[in-house]
Write a protein that binds this DNA or RNA. Structure first.
Lengths: 147, 147
DNA sequence: TTGTGTGCAAAGCATTTGCAATACT
DNA sequence: AGTATTGCAAATGCTTTGCACACAA
């Protein structure tokens, strides 16, 4: 079974998760979370910054980076370093495939239930204690291939 | 079936591949190829530079980067951007799993024949024209988990 | 011989850090 | 009130680029 979208976290659960670990739920952090954790576009830090600045004009890029670091620590987000210093952030931390189009640059998540099982079996056979994964496929999406 | 090592390319075939595309087979390039294409350690550009400099003291980091760019273009190497600006280079361009140990930092290739078939099927079902892949699993290798 | 490649130094970027002022809890 | 966080500017580190000289074909 394959689906294309992941479950979005509620803001309240995020605020709770921050406080539980001793982090303060500042308006800047909440704004970054709102965008970073609910965007399906795998945004870069800069893209998050520019979006959040629309409603929070004084926020700095440094704050965005610091917040992303916290979200990573809380396991609410996954960092995906790409080529040319393009690091993207993925709020889907479950085993899934990032389908990366080499033409339009879009990244679509492929949430396939078999994926997790498959890598679990592989890890087990190599006596590897699995903690996370990053599964990218590169190529052309249907639209770009046809066009 | 799973194996841990990939077939190493001969230097002659590499020189041929360079010339065929109009690139000159300079001693610097050959030295970089010898290390980058035959190392199982997924070295960084800097590590390649330091290794090659042992026998070629005048080589510059810029030349290493330029050579790696050429090797990527010739599809002889895969670039793997990691966290904290750590970009590693993998001479194994066939579908395989990079088993990344979060403790010792070692990356071991898992060449499993099913992997390629599995992602091909997934791509097909999503009408995605597959060109390449990057499949990482993160966790602890047997040695680090036991110790 | 000719145009590509090398090596150096400088530039370009993404990300991180130090610190004084600010504001959550 | 007390301490973590913000925002700025500077620093860091990887990678790229421009250019004069060297060299592979």
């Amino acid at each position: 079974m394959t689906t294309f979208f992941h479950e979005k976290k509620s803001l309240n659960s995020i605020i709770e998760a921050l406080r539980k670990k001793g982090y303060k739920a500042t308006p800047q952090r909440i704004a970054v979370c709102r965008y970073a954790l609910q965007s399906p576009t795998h945004p870069t830090a800069k893209a998050i910054y520019q979006k959040v600045r629309e409603e929070y004009p004084t926020i700095s890029l440094a704050t965005v980076y610091k917040t992303l670091k916290v979200l990573k620590e809380l396991d609410l987000i996954q960092e995906l370093p790409f080529f040319q210093g393009q690091t993207r952030f993925d709020p889907n931390v479950n085993p899934h495939i990032n389908m990366v189009c080499l033409k339009c640059g879009k990244i679509i998540d492929l949430n396939n239930t078999e994926v997790g099982i498959f890598i679990q079996k592989l890890a087990q056979s190599a006596k590897f204690r699995l903690k996370g994964q990053r599964l990218d496929i590169y190529g052309f999406c249907e639209k770009c291939f046809k066009g």
